[in-house]
C-alpha cells in the first residue's frame, strides 16, 4: 500500500509534465473542478444515503430477521417432532417387549398344558394296557389249565382206547388213572 502511494507520488510529480500540454495540468489537482465534484458528490451520496437508510437496509434487515425467525421456529418444530417420534418409538418398543413376554407366557402355558395332557393320556393308556395284560394273562392261564385238564381226559381216553385195541378189553377208569398217575409221578 505504501509502495503504491510512493509510486503515485512519483508518477504524479513526473507525469504532469507529460500531461501539461492538455489543459490545466494534473486533473485531480485542478481546483476549478472541485465545486462541481463536491456538488454532484453531495447529490449522489445524499441520494444513496436516503435510499439505503429509508428503503434498502430496513428491508434487507427485515428479510434477514424473518429468515432467522423462520429457521428458529422450524428447528424448534423439528426438535419437538423428533422428541415425539422418540417417545412413540419408546412406547412401541415397550409394547413390543410386552407382547413378546405375553407370547412367551402363552407358549409356555400351552407347552406345559399339552405336556400335562399327554402325561395324563399316557398314564391312562398305560393303566389300560396293564389291566388288559393282566386280563390276558389270566385268560391264558385259564386256557392253559383248561387245556391241561383236557389233555388228561384225552390221554385217559387214548390210553383206554389203546389198551382196548391191544387187549380187546376196556380197562377200568381207576386202573387208567392209577397208571397215568404212576407215569406222571415217575
Amino acid at each position: 500500500m505504501r509502495r503504491f502511494l510512493a509510486s503515485a507520488l512519483f508518477l504524479s510529480s513526473a507525469l504532469p509534465v507529460l500531461a501539461a500540454e492538455s489543459k490545466g495540468g494534473f486533473p485531480p489537482f485542478n481546483a476549478s473542478t472541485f465545486a462541481g465534484q463536491l456538488f454532484w458528490l453531495a447529490l449522489t451520496f445524499g441520494t444513496l444515503y436516503l435510499l439505503m437508510s429509508r428503503v434498502a437496509l430496513p428491508r434487507v434487515g427485515a428479510i434477514l430477521a424473518e429468515r432467522e425467525a423462520t429457521i428458529e421456529t422450524s428447528l424448534a418444530q423439528a426438535s419437538k417432532a423428533q422428541a415425539a417420534a422418540e417417545a412413540e418409538a419408546q412406547g412401541l418398543e415397550q409394547a413390543l417387549a410386552k407382547a413378546k413376554a405375553n407370547a412367551q407366557a402363552i407358549a409356555q402355558e400351552a407347552r406345559s398344558k399339552s405336556a400335562r395332557e399327554i402325561d395324563a393320556k399316557r398314564s391312562t393308556v398305560e393303566k389300560d394296557l396293564a389291566a388288559k395284560m393282566v386280563a390276558a394273562e389270566a385268560s391264558i392261564n385259564e386256557t392253559k389249565t383248561k387245556a391241561m385238564g383236557n389233555v388228561e381226559d384225552i390221554a385217559r381216553e387214548a390210553v383206554s382206547a389203546i389198551i382196548e385195541q391191544l387187549s380187546g378189553k376196556a380197562p377200568t377208569a381207576a386202573a387208567v388213572t392209577k397208571a397215568i398217575n404212576a407215569a406222571r409221578g415217575e
Binding site: 465545486a35 462541481g36 465534484q37 454532484w40 444513496l48 434498502a56 434487507v60
Partner: peptide, 22 residues
C-alpha cells in the same frame, strides 16, 4: 460551475448500480 461531468455521470452510475442491487 456545476456542470454534469463524466465524474458526475459515474457517481450517478455507482449510485444506480448500488440501488439496483440493494
Amino acid at each position: 460551475d456545476m456542470s454534469f461531468t463524466n465524474s458526475a455521470l459515474w457517481m450517478v452510475i455507482a449510485v444506480a448500480v448500488t440501488t439496483l442491487v440493494m
